[in-house]
């Protein structure tokens, strides 16, 4: 029991440290402190609102989708289909980029190709459909369209480049990590 509590403190130590730091700022620089607590709180609410459905879908995916199915559609020999699914999966997503990493973890665990996972991450970060509409209204249609066209190529280039830079052993380690999650 005691070791369990100790383990919990150990896992959350950076968070606790930061929380103390924030309290210190609150005391010594109240203006900055209040603002930062407000911002943290609103981001926290945003996170709590978007994460539950993502994690529920991940849990269901983990239980129901068989490794063979995932490998077939997004694995090593999935070709263009895998790339398209990765793009659509990322673009249809909601939530900030950090919510995409657990999704990436499950895709890897089920045998998805590494470059496809990076494409999903890239699409999640920049080509989300509701975001594009928002971008067009805030910064203009031309701005959005030009960036979108470049991003589609950029995402693919970054994904293949990142995969190329990794050795076979490093890739293996990434899959091992995903299995351990």
């Amino acid at each position: 029991m005691r070791s369990k509590a100790l383990n919990l403190v150990k896992r959350y130590r950076i968070f606790l440290l930061l929380a103390f730091l924030n309290i210190a700022i609150l005391i010594f620089l109240p203006q900055v402190g209040v603002k930062s607590v407000q911002l943290t709180w609103s981001n926290f609410i945003e996170m709590l609102s978007v994460l539950p459905p993502i994690f529920i879908l991940l849990g269901l995916l983990d239980v129901w989708v068989q490794r063979e199915t995932m490998t077939k559609y997004m694995g090593e020999h999935s070709g263009l289909i895998g790339v398209l699914i990765a793009f659509l999966l990322g673009s249809a997503a909601a939530g900030p980029l950090y919510a995409a990493f657990p999704v990436a973890g499950v895709l890897l665990k089920k045998g998805s190709k590494l470059s496809n996972v990076f494409i999903m991450l890239g699409a999640w970060s920049t080509t989300k459909i509701p975001l594009l509409l928002f971008e067009a209204s805030a910064l203009g249609f031309k701005f959005m369209l030009l960036r979108l066209v470049m991003d589609i190529f950029g995402i693919a280039i970054i994904a293949y480049f990142t995969e190329k830079m990794l050795s076979k052993k490093e890739k293996e380690e990434i899959y091992q990590r995903a299995l351990a999650q």
Binding site: Y12, I14, F15, L18, K35, Q38, L39, M47, L58
Partner: peptide, 21 residues
């Protein structure tokens, strides 16, 4: 998997809050 990543999520939220302030 949520609880697994929660410590990092929470830490990052505080860092972002402080930076934007």
């Amino acid at each position: 998997s949520f609880e697994n990543i929660l410590p990092q999520f929470l830490s990052i939220l505080i860092i972002i809050g402080m930076m934007l302030a």
